[in-house]
């Protein structure tokens, strides 16, 4: 009986001491901040398109930090999912089709002679990339446009087109070579397509 009590006593004592140490350390060495949200936010494409179901990229970053799936961002596509998976050390999963599909880079263009100057697109634009005033023609600053599509819906006269950013001689770049004995690898498509790199 005494041994049992002694054992329990010693364990309790140890626990108390260690608990005290940790408690003290927790107060003494307390640090603020949750940088993981910032890190996640930095990886998101900042289109602020809301396709993930959140009003902007930062809210989605916060949602991811709270455990939401990382595959809800179509503008970022697989590259962003991969980067997030690396950061959070989770499995990279394919893009969730419910939130849209990955498309080529696009910008909004207003057909200016059809624009009635209603300013609705200006209000919708999350990055202030549309210029114009009431009853004046509006225009999109192409450099600032993130291609988020948000201005298309509100336009009462449907004068906004999403135009794919084409390739010019200045922006053109070499393709990635096809790899080892490219011609001989055609038959083994399954071997390469299904794999998700780590």
């Amino acid at each position: 009986m005494l041994t049992v009590l002694l054992a329990i006593g010693i364990l309790v004592l140890l626990s108390l001491i260690f608990g005290a140490i940790l408690g003290y350390a927790n107060v003494r060495f307390h640090v603020e901040g949750d940088p993981i949200v910032d890190q996640i936010d930095a990886l998101l494409p900042q289109t602020q398109c809301g396709q993930c179901g959140h009003p902007g990229c930062r809210p989605y970053a916060e949602a991811i930090a709270n455990g939401e799936a990382i595959n809800h961002c179509p503008p970022g596509g697989q590259a962003t999912i991969q980067a997030l998976a690396d950061l959070l050390d989770v499995e990279a999963i394919p893009l969730d089709g419910d939130h849209g599909t990955e498309t080529a880079k696009r910008v909004a263009v207003i057909r200016e002679d059809e624009c009635i100057g209603c300013t609705k697109c200006i209000q919708a634009c999350p990055v202030d990339a549309i210029l114009g005033a009431a009853k004046q023609m509006h225009t999109v600053i192409a450099d600032e446009c993130t291609g988020c599509d948000l201005c298309v819906e509100p336009c009462p006269v449907d004068c906004i087109d999403m135009v794919e950013v084409g390739v010019t001689a200045k922006t053109w770049s070499w393709d990635k070579p096809q790899g080892i004995a490219a011609t001989s690898l055609n038959i083994i498509a399954t071997d390469r397509q299904t794999e998700v790199a780590h």
């Binding site: 364990l11 260690f18 940790l22």
Partner: peptide, 20 residues
Amino acid sequence: ISFILVIAVVVQFTEMVVHK
């Protein structure tokens, strides 16, 4: 059991100190 305790405390304590 006591070693597990010790290890846990050392790890936690180290983490806090280093963090600060």
